[in-house]
């Protein structure tokens, strides 16, 4: 696959998969306000995914639509980082994952606004405003839960141990990143991510794990977790079962 197209799909699939995961909270959030907040964040991300997928479909030039790319690709064609496809776990785990992603997403989108590809720069500028708002909320919530009760702190510590090995992939460069010039190298975001994450974890009374081991295979598509297939089975069911349905 063309490196430029693959890079656009990586943006689209991160937003689409995380957006879908967050939407799973709709109707089952711990309190109404949080339920609404998660659904709104999901809506922003799915809107961003649409902007990226529309562009990906144009770059691909095969007559496919954004919906085709969302609903008619299989697991190994998805290029999202493993972090975003993991199951939600409890509310704390969902928000900690959101925070790890947001802490990457905001500086990454800000860097993309300088892309020589005008469309990439436009979509990034639009998305960055939303990402800034997401980061503000996820950081505050992680601090509130980490520095909350014994119960909430213990749950956040467990979530941290589970999620940590999945954070590194967001910032590991591979051959696709090196083979194009529309987007900067993901590793260039590492200093900004470290600064944000260190500050928030400290304030949340959580200890940053000292391992830098990173599970990879999501951004390349070659080794997704078992969870993505289950998620897609639900997300893609309707358009696959009723291919002529319109709404």
């Amino acid at each position: 696959m063309d490196a430029a197209l693959e890079c656009v799909l990586r943006q689209a699939d991160n937003a689409l998969v995380l957006g879908h995961r967050l939407s799973e909270w709709c109707g089952v959030g711990p309190v109404l306000e949080e339920d609404i907040a998660l659904a709104n964040t999901a809506l922003d991300l799915i809107g961003q995914a649409k902007l990226w997928l529309e562009y990906a479909a144009e770059v691909q030039g095969a007559g496919r639509t954004a919906d085709d790319l969302a609903f008619r690709r299989d697991v190994y064609d998805f290029k999202n980082a493993l972090l975003v496809e993991l199951p939600n776990g409890d509310f704390g785990q969902t928000l900690l994952r959101e925070f790890f992603f947001d802490a990457f997403h905001l500086p990454w989108l800000q860097a993309l606004t300088a892309s020589p590809d005008a469309r990439v720069a436009e979509v990034a500028a639009k998305s960055a405003k939303e990402a800034a708002y997401h980061l503000e909320r996820s950081a505050e919530t992680v601090i509130a839960l980490g520095d909350g009760t014994d119960e909430s702190h213990a749950r956040m510590a467990a979530a941290l141990a589970y999620l940590w090995p999945y954070t590194g992939e967001l910032m590991v460069d591979d051959a696709v990143d090196l083979g194009q010039d529309a987007m900067p190298l993901p590793s260039s975001i590492r200093p900004a991510w470290d600064t944000t994450v260190n500050a928030v974890l400290a304030e949340a009374m959580l200890t940053r794990p000292d391992s830098d081991f990173a599970h990879t295979g999501g951004r390349s598509g070659v080794r997704h977790t078992e969870h993505l297939g289950h998620m897609l089975a639900q997300m893609q069911f309707l358009p696959r079962a009723y291919p002529t349905a319109t709404w």
Partner: peptide, 13 residues
């Protein structure tokens, strides 16, 4: 503030 989000994408509670 009750919540950073509200009934539509453009509002907070």
């Amino acid at each position: 503030r009750i919540s950073q989000f509200g009934s539509t994408a453009c509002k907070a509670q």
